[in-house]
């Protein structure tokens, strides 16, 4: 077990280096650079001398291999550098945005699991009934709807409904407050984005739960259990659900990493100052250090989540041995 984990961690090193090289090159292939965005972004005069001064200040005049070594070396010793845009340490930039994103991601996962697992199970048990069809339709609709559309419409609905009920339109604050400062205010801010993301997430999970359940229900041991006359409830709880959870856990883990993508759009819609918005900003400002750090963070989270999922998988299903 320990050897397996160690092995997996070693295997992740080439992945990390490869991702580092990819983001490094990709960012530098984008025409223009941060100095141009900064000096010319509002249509001001960009003089050659100001551009050169900006390049020197940021360190863009150095050779590419040198910049890459600097990036990789810094990463290896835990030094992520400073944001080229704000001049603040990257760690600080990310740390100030992480709480809101984590909160939404977590809440969305809870929403998703709470909806998906019971509904997915019911859907499988009542396969091809009208209930199954309704659940599946709702689930697929969740996957099919563009999330920004859902987000924009959901704010409008809140505005219209509150206008109708209270006489004046209400919406959550657009100025984030931390959970520990104002729990109610905080919750009102994060709940809509969490539901928006959670709906899609639950849809994916629900479908997976359903098909995993269906598969398990056809296994011999369930048939045996049924033949032995065990109570249906017991069969589902003790045998079927537990085994069906394997692929579902995998999916939840994988989707958690993919949440970053969902956050990119949703955070813009709800004006949340989180990692997703920072990501878009970093790419559009051509802030190399910040983008690199964010990509490495995402990749690292992905690698770790995958590992945790695999370990969990084995723990849930003793038939799997680590090779």
């Amino acid at each position: 077990m320990h050897r397996y984990i160690l092995n997996r961690l070693l295997l992740s090193i080439p992945t990390l280096i490869g991702a580092a090289a990819l983001v490094f090159l990709l960012m530098r292939l984008i025409p223009g650079d941060i100095c141009m965005v900064r000096l010319g972004g509002s249509g001001g005069t960009v003089s050659a001398s100001a551009l050169a001064a900006c390049h020197a200040q940021i360190g863009l005049e150095r050779s590419l291999p040198l910049q890459f070594l600097d990036f990789i070396g810094g990463f290896a010793i835990g030094d992520f550098g400073t944001s080229m845009w704000s001049g603040k340490p990257v760690v600080q930039e990310i740390a100030s945005r992480l709480p809101v994103s984590l909160e939404i991601a977590l809440l969305a996962t809870i929403v998703a699991v709470a909806i998906a697992i019971p509904l997915g199970t019911i859907s499988a048990l009542k396969q091809n009934s009208w209930l199954d069809h309704v659940v599946r339709t709702v689930a697929i609709a969740g996957i099919a709807t563009p999330s920004f559309w859902l987000g924009i419409l959901s704010i409008l609905i809140v505005l219209d409904v509150s206008h109708y009920l209270l006489g004046s339109p209400w919406m959550p604050s657009i100025d984030y407050v931390p959970l520990w400062d104002d729990p109610w205010g905080n919750l009102s801010i994060v709940i809509l984005p969490a539901i928006t993301i959670g709906y899609r997430y639950s849809a994916v999970t629900m479908r997976m739960t359903r098909s995993a359940m269906l598969e398990v229900l056809r296994e011999d041991y369930i048939r045996t259990a049924r033949a032995k006359g065990l109570v249906e409830q017991l069969i589902i709880n003790r045998h079927a659900l537990k085994n069906a959870m394997l692929p579902v856990v995998t999916l939840i883990g994988m989707e958690f990493a993919f949440l970053i993508g969902g956050l990119v759009v949703t955070e813009q819609v709800f004006n949340l100052n989180g990692i997703g918005r920072l990501f878009v900003l970093a790419v559009q400002n051509q802030d190399y250090t910040l983008t690199q750090a964010l990509v490495m963070l995402t990749v690292a989270v992905f690698v770790v989540t995958n590992l945790v999922v695999d370990v969990l998988y084995a723990w849930l299903d003793p038939r799997i041995r680590f090779g």
């Binding site: 339109p169 919406m171 604050s173 819609v269 709800f270 004006n271």
Partner: peptide, 21 residues
Amino acid sequence: FNAIFAAKQSVRVDAIRADRA
């Protein structure tokens, strides 16, 4: 004063409507 960064158009209109700004 409290100045809030809000880059997206729809957010700003909604916020004025709900008197968040």
